[in-house]
Design a binder for these strands. Structure first.
Lengths: 157, 157
DNA sequence: TCCAGATGGTCAACGAGGTTGAACATCTTC
DNA sequence: GAAGATGTTCAACCTCGTTGACCATCTGGA
C-alpha cells in the first residue's frame, strides 16, 4: 500500500520503495557490468554482516527479519558462489559461523565502491547536507519506532 | 544490497527498505484491527490508480513496474474481494477498465485516514518541515533519475 | 551427574506472487 | 481489407519465502 498524502503529494512509503529499487537496480547493473553476474540483492546483507567478524545463521536471520531456514538457504547459495564459507569447530559446537572468502572480500569492495558513487550522485542533486539530513532524520524516526535500534529489514524483492 | 556508507553510517538503501516495511506493516496492522483482513500490500497501488478514474490493466502494470499478467492477477484478486470491478463496453473494445466499488471506496478512505496518521507520527519525531523536506528531496532525486517523472515501483515484498 | 528443555542448524513440503510463452479479440494503418 | 500492433487472459514455471519436523549440542536445576 502506498497511498497519497492528504495534499496529493506522493506518499513517503511509495518514495521509499522507488528509492530502494532505484539504488539496488543501479548497484546491480554496475556490478553486472564489472562481471559480477551471480549477485543477488540479499547478498549485501550477509556481506556487511560478516564484514568484520563471522556471523551465525541465526544472527543473520534476525538481522534480516527472516526465518533461520531462509537465511540458511541464502548462505548456502553464497557458499556455492564462493563468497562465504562455513566454519567448523566453533566454541559452541552447534554453530557454523559464516565468514568471507577472498572472493567475497573482493565483491564487498566493489559493492562499497559503487554504492559510494551512487550516493555521491544523489548528493549532486540534493546537496551533501541534504543527503546527510535525510539519513539522519530517517535514522531518528526509524530507531524511534524500535526503541533505539534500527529494526531488521526483510530483503524481499 | 544495502551496503554501509563510507563513514559507517547506515546506507540510504537500507533505511528506505526499513522505512517502507515499517509504514506498510503499520498500515496493514491498523487496517486489520479495523476488520480489513484481506488486504494485500499491492492493493494500495490499484486503489490509488483508480481513485479518480478507471484504469486499464496495462496502465496498472506500467505504474507498478510489473508485467501485464501480474497486474491482471492482482486485479482478479481484488475483484474477488469486492474492491474493484471490470467494466465492459469501453470505447476501445479490447480494454476492460477497472473501477472502485463502494466497498473499495470505503477501504480507500480507511487507508488514507490511517496513512495520514502515520506520517503525522513521523512529523512528531522529525518535525513537519523535516518531513516535507524529505519528501521534496526524494521527489527531486527520484524524478531526476527518470527524466522528470517518478519511476514505477515494484510492489514486491 | 544427568536429564529436560532451550538453542543452532538443516531438510522437506508447501505457498505467495512474480515471470515467460502462447492464444485470442480488437484496433489501426496503409 | 489484410497485416501488424495492442489489450487481456490462460497455463506452466520459477524464485524465494514460510511452516513443520528433525537432529545435534549446550545449559541449568534436581
Amino acid at each position: 500500500m502506498t497511498p497519497a498524502s492528504p495534499a496529493g503529494e506522493p506518499a513517503l512509503a511509495r518514495l521509499f520503495a522507488i528509492g530502494y529499487r532505484l539504488l539496488i537496480d543501479q548497484l546491480h547493473g554496475r556490478l553486472r557490468a564489472l562481471g559480477w553476474t551471480d549477485v543477488r540483492p540479499a547478498f549485501g546483507f550477509v556481506l556487511l554482516a560478516v564484514r568484520d567478524q563471522p556471523a551465525t545463521v541465526t544472527g543473520l536471520a534476525s538481522l534480516m527479519g527472516t526465518t533461520k531456514q531462509a537465511a540458511s538457504k541464502l548462505v548456502e547459495t553464497m557458499v556455492v558462489s564462493g563468497y562465504v564459507e562455513r566454519e567448523t569447530g566453533a566454541r559452541d559446537g552447534r554453530q557454523r559461523p559464516v565468514h568471507l572468502t577472498p572472493r567475497g572480500k573482493e565483491l564487498l569492495r566493489a559493492v562499497e565502491q559503487i554504492y559510494a558513487e551512487l550516493e555521491q550522485e544523489w548528493a549532486q542533486v540534493i546537496g551533501a547536507p541534504g543527503l546527510q539530513r535525510m539519513r539522519r532524520d530517517l535514522v531518528r524516526v526509524l530507531s524511534d519506532a524500535d526503541d533505539g535500534a534500527l529494526p531488521p529489514v526483510r530483503p524481499v524483492w
